[in-house]
């Protein structure tokens, strides 16, 4: 039981950052950012590479920076080169595969053996449960900054860009700039998450990003179906709660082996399909029953 709670909180908090990032790109900017998988691995590779060379704290900042850069590129592709947003994400994602290999010196994984990580530094200082406390602190910090930022003039402009493109095009807001800043922020949060996962697992792997975007979206939607999404604060809370619920299910399945753990990605795909498709399924059912009753 303790194991389940522990794993749930650890992973829920760390991966909760991805949901938070997707809240920025998918909900606020209305862009399905498919570069998320690649950016997550980018953050992981950068973070582990820096930790490997003895800079575990700097590693996290560099992970954030790398994500911001990657987000800027994706945004540049869709704003200045007018590539459709989904394709722009895929292009960046594809390119990142090579970049990530390059960072790990063309090996498909990189492991930390005796090097320090941010978690081991805290453990050495006598702080137990650093793998829960640190991600919790980071999540609180990032979500508070994000919450405040979204209330500033620039934050409002970014929200308007995703909310009503027609309005923004005819306004004094430079939609290219707001899209770039928004995606840079979203991707830097994603890569921070990757960076933390890398140091937590003490390894970076080129394939560890598969499905990150779908899982993140599933968490976001699970959270939103529990908490109403009528204010930014609730939206942010929803990303965390959704992520924790998802990881709880994950941990229970892992522990009890109701079905093989290999099925998890398929089940995730089902969860997200049902969650996003539920409103139209409901509508069809309602109109069908009405039709029958009428006849």
């Amino acid at each position: 039981m303790l194991f389940i709670v522990q794993t749930t909180l650890q992973l829920g908090l760390i991966y909760g950052l991805v949901s938070l990032a997707l809240f920025v790109s998918y909900r606020i900017l209305n862009i399905a950012d498919l570069s998320t998988d690649g950016t997550f691995v980018l953050g992981m590779c950068v973070s582990v590479a820096f930790a490997y060379n003895g800079h575990p704290i700097l590693a996290l900042f560099m992970a954030i920076l790398s994500g911001a850069l990657s987000g800027t590129i994706t945004a540049y592709l869709q704003t200045y080169l007018e590539i459709p947003s989904i394709l722009a994400g895929i292009i960046t994602n594809t390119g990142l595969y090579t970049i990530n290999l390059m960072i790990m010196n063309y090996s498909s994984n990189l492991a930390l053996l005796k090097q320090e990580t941010v978690f081991s530094i805290l453990e050495n200082k006598g702080i137990n449960n650093s793998s829960i406390i640190l991600p919790a602190l980071i999540f609180i910090l990032i979500s508070t900054l994000l919450y405040l930022f979204l209330k500033t003039r620039l934050g409002l402009s970014i929200r308007a860009t995703g909310d009503n493109t027609d309005m923004v095009l005819a306004s004094s807001i430079d939609a290219r700039k707001t899209t770039i800043i928004g995606l840079a922020i979203a991707n830097s949060i994603t890569s921070l998450s990757g960076g933390l996962v890398g140091q937590f697992q003490r390894t970076a792997d080129i394939n560890s990003g598969t499905g990150v975007v779908v899982i993140g979206l599933a968490c976001l939607i699970i959270g939103e179906s529990i908490i109403s999404k009528d204010s930014i604060l609730k939206n942010i809370l929803a990303t965390l709660i959704g992520s924790i619920i998802y990881r709880l299910l994950y941990a229970i399945i892992l522990r009890t082996r109701i079905f093989p753990i290999e099925f998890l990605k398929l089940i995730t795909a089902f969860i997200i399909t049902i969650a996003i498709g539920l409103p139209s399924i409901r509508k069809t059912i309602i109109s069908n029953t009405k039709e029958k009753r009428h006849a």
Partner: peptide, 14 residues
């Protein structure tokens, strides 16, 4: 002319 998912106050502030 206005952003539907933002409040009246936020729209005016913009």
């Amino acid at each position: 002319g206005s952003a539907p998912n933002m409040t009246i106050e936020e729209n005016l502030a913009l």
